[in-house]
């Protein structure tokens, strides 16, 4: 689900306002439809009749030096007006997490002039010189860089795309706000991270989230905690908690062959175990994550608790390892911690 909400929830930032038009009014924009049938490759491309949309990749990697690394690559689309394909603002976020440091970069671009955009097949998503390109979304090369660090990763899907929620219709609140949401949680990733200390060859797993909506959050919701977990047995799990106005949780259990089992509000329990001061805020960095229906009860520990994305819409996003009933690696995103 992810940053749809972010853009709505942080109106203090002008572009958040700009992106989501204050987040309360979907007038003129298309609304998510529970009967919509997601189809590929069509839905890999942009849906400009919806207000907001993103292509969101996180990767849990191990370097040739034996250490853990994390990489994030995101492209957000935000429509300025309904019905104008070119009236878009694009925003790119990139993050690299090492055990000691976290690098964040951000780009903005307007649509319609070639600075940024997405094409479904052959797949191509780009902003400035950052890009994610390949013959199809199942086989892409993903690059981004900033003044200090950058990366280039080849992603090859080793499993199917997974529809979240009810066949890709993901409900976000008790009032019924929703988005279209699918994932590719089975990428095998390989490539190089350029750090100030030099390049490091890396390999591991990556996870893509695709989501689009026009009015994804209810008014009282203030932030969320979102987990993507990869288990040693090959299973995957996505789970999030939306905070405010009575917490709302949702989860999807994904078998190793890609078969999803969605769980509605209340099935997932997430509990902060340790709070750390990050960028001047109190942020829970260690969690207990429980999905009793699948026998999951794990404790997550971040690779680097300072994985703060100090961009214009700041949030926490970083890789983690977990243990308990299961072991594995994953990614955590937390927003709305002021």
């Amino acid at each position: 689900m992810r940053l749809i909400c972010l853009l709505v929830l942080l109106p203090a930032t002008s572009l958040a306002q700009g992106f989501a038009g204050l987040g309360t009014d979907a007038e003129g924009f298309a609304l998510p439809d529970p009967d919509y049938a997601i189809a590929f490759p069509r839905d890999h491309g942009p849906h400009s009749d919806y207000r907001i949309e993103w292509w969101y990749v996180t990767a849990t990697l191990t370097g040739e030096d034996g250490r853990d690394y994390g990489v994030q690559w995101t492209l957000f689309r935000s429509a300025l007006a309904p019905g104008e394909a070119d009236a878009q603002v694009w925003m790119g976020h990139a993050g690299i997490t090492t055990p000691e440091r976290h690098f964040a970069a951000e780009r903005f671009a307007r649509g319609g002039v070639g600075l940024a955009g997405v094409e479904a097949e052959p797949f191509r998503a780009w902003i400035d010189e950052w890009s994610m390109e390949g013959p199809s979304l199942s086989d892409v090369t993903m690059t981004a860089r900033g003044p200090e660090a950058g990366f280039a990763l080849d992603l090859v899907a080793e499993g199917p795309f997974v529809l979240q929620g009810a066949l890709g219709y993901s409900v976000k609140s008790a009032e019924g706000q929703a988005s279209h949401y699918y994932s590719q949680p089975f990428y095998r990733a390989e490539g190089v991270i350029d750090l100030p200390s030099g390049p490091v060859a890396v390999a591991g797993d990556a996870w893509l989230d695709r989501e689009w909506s026009s009015q994804p959050l209810s008014e009282g919701q203030t932030g969320w905690d979102w987990f993507s977990l990869s288990f040693e047995g090959g299973e995957r799990m996505m789970g999030f908690r939306l905070r405010g106005g009575g917490d709302y949780t949702s989860a999807t259990w994904i078998e190793a062959d890609g078969t999803p089992t969605p769980y509605g509000d209340g099935a997932l329990r997430v509990t902060p175990l340790r709070v750390a001061e990050v960028a001047g805020r109190d942020v829970p960095v260690e969690w207990r994550v429980e999905l009793p229906a699948e026998g999951v009860d794990v404790r997550t520990v971040p690779l680097n608790e300072d994985a703060w994305m100090g961009v214009s819409v700041p949030y926490w996003e970083g890789p983690l390892r977990f243990e308990g009933t299961h072991e594995g690696r994953g990614y955590l995103e937390m927003t709305g911690y002021e």
């Binding site: 306002q17 440091r101 970069a105 900033g146 003044p147 214009s312």
Partner: peptide
Amino acid sequence: AGPFAGGGEAGGRAGEGAATEA
């Protein structure tokens, strides 16, 4: 371009132009 800066100092630059407007 927005810096790929380290740690908590990261970023925000790219938004500055627009933030001024707000």
